[in-house]
């Protein structure tokens, strides 16, 4: 799904506070990512693509809903690039637009499991909606 308006590289850098130029292309983020196989674009690609300005492609990818925010890439990056913050910024670039929530409150009842902790619902709402 193409986005309705443009989010610039500068906005992503500002929202995330990340400087992709600190990346030395070691691949540690993608080596440590537990969600790697679920993603179309992988953590190291988020860094490289943001640096190149390919924001649109990332905004259109389901990968932005696959990050678990486990912070393994943030913790283990030897250059303190913090790739997960770019994933978050790109996702916010999408869901902050009107009618672009990834998850709607109406969707939730169908997803519920009696044992599911509230924490999961709150977290998902925080990550996927505005």
């Amino acid at each position: 799904m193409a986005s309705t308006y443009t989010v610039t590289k500068e906005q992503i850098l500002s929202i995330s506070g990340v400087d992709p130029q600190k990346c030395m292309r070691c691949g540690k983020c993608s080596a440590t990512c537990p969600s790697y196989d679920e993603m179309e674009y992988h953590p190291h690609q988020f860094v490289a693509m943001v640096e190149k300005g390919e924001i649109e492609k990332l905004m259109g990818s389901p990968s932005i809903y696959k990050c678990m925010s486990c912070m393994a890439c943030i913790q283990r990056c030897p250059r303190q690039v913090e790739p997960a913050k770019l994933v978050e910024a790109i996702r916010l670039g999408v869901i902050r637009q009107q009618e672009r929530n990834h998850l709607k409150p109406d969707d939730i009842p169908a997803l519920l499991d009696p044992e599911l902790p509230q924490q999961a619902i709150v977290s998902a709402m925080r990550k996927y909606t505005k």
Binding site: P34, Y65, K66, M68, L111, A120, A124
Partner: peptide, 13 residues
């Protein structure tokens, strides 16, 4: 990671 809140959308992870 255990998979976290992704469980809501996709239990496979």
């Amino acid at each position: 990671c255990c998979g976290g809140y992704l469980t809501l959308e996709d239990e496979s992870i």
